[in-house]
């Protein structure tokens, strides 16, 4: 089996083997993210909903725009954020000391997109990185971030908007080498 070939185009064709492999390959990642952003008792429902979203959106995956893993995390994120906001609940109590200088590196090996995002964030100041971490990793709302960090709400919004725009530009500017798109 070619482990680097994207699965989603085959999933979109209703390929049963690809569906199985997709669950095996990305199930752990989605489960871990859901557990972090959802109350434990709701994480299972959320993961099932995410996979349904994934089957629905598989045909939209474009290997020239992102890696498969990034696309799948986008689908998962959107579902989880929707659930989180509907419940208007924090995912967990945040200890600001733990987020003072968020560590990112372990996930980089598996995704070139993540490496580029990391690179873009390296060019940001510490406060902006922290705000992005609280928003993207822990799923906190802008208001919750302002409350947690003491940074003004407008500044939080500005950090997130500029930060994501910078990451988007980085992803687009670097180009899309084929080898990185083949990664899971």
């Amino acid at each position: 089996m070619n482990a680097t070939a994207p699965l989603l185009p085959r999933v979109a064709q209703g390929d049963q083997g690809a569906v199985k492999t997709c669950i095996d390959t990305y199930g752990g990642l989605i489960w871990s993210v859901a557990k972090r952003l959802c109350p434990a008792q709701e994480a299972e429902d959320a993961v099932q909903e995410i996979f349904i979203d994934l089957w629905k959106n598989a045909a939209r995956f474009d290997a020239s725009k992102s890696s498969e893993k990034t696309f799948i995390v986008m689908i998962a994120r959107r579902r989880l954020i929707d659930r989180l906001r509907q419940q208007k609940r924090r995912p967990e109590q945040v200890n600001l000391a733990d987020t003072a200088e968020p560590a990112y590196s372990a996930g980089l090996e598996a995704s070139a997109d993540a490496a580029l995002a990391h690179e873009a964030m390296q060019g940001m100041n510490r406060e902006q990185r922290q705000v992005l971490y609280l928003s993207l990793h822990l799923g906190l709302s802008h208001g919750e971030i302002a409350e947690t960090t003491g940074v003004a709400l407008g500044t939080v919004k500005s950090h997130i908007r500029r930060g994501l725009s910078a990451i988007r530009e980085k992803l687009e500017m670097i180009g899309k080498p084929k080898e990185r798109r083949a990664m899971p």
Binding site: G107, D113, A114, A115, L136, R168
Partner: peptide, 12 residues
């Protein structure tokens, strides 16, 4: 959405 996902993966 992909930018947010890539950043999220960078923290993973």
């Amino acid at each position: 959405g992909l930018a947010a996902a890539a950043a999220m993966l960078a923290f993973e």
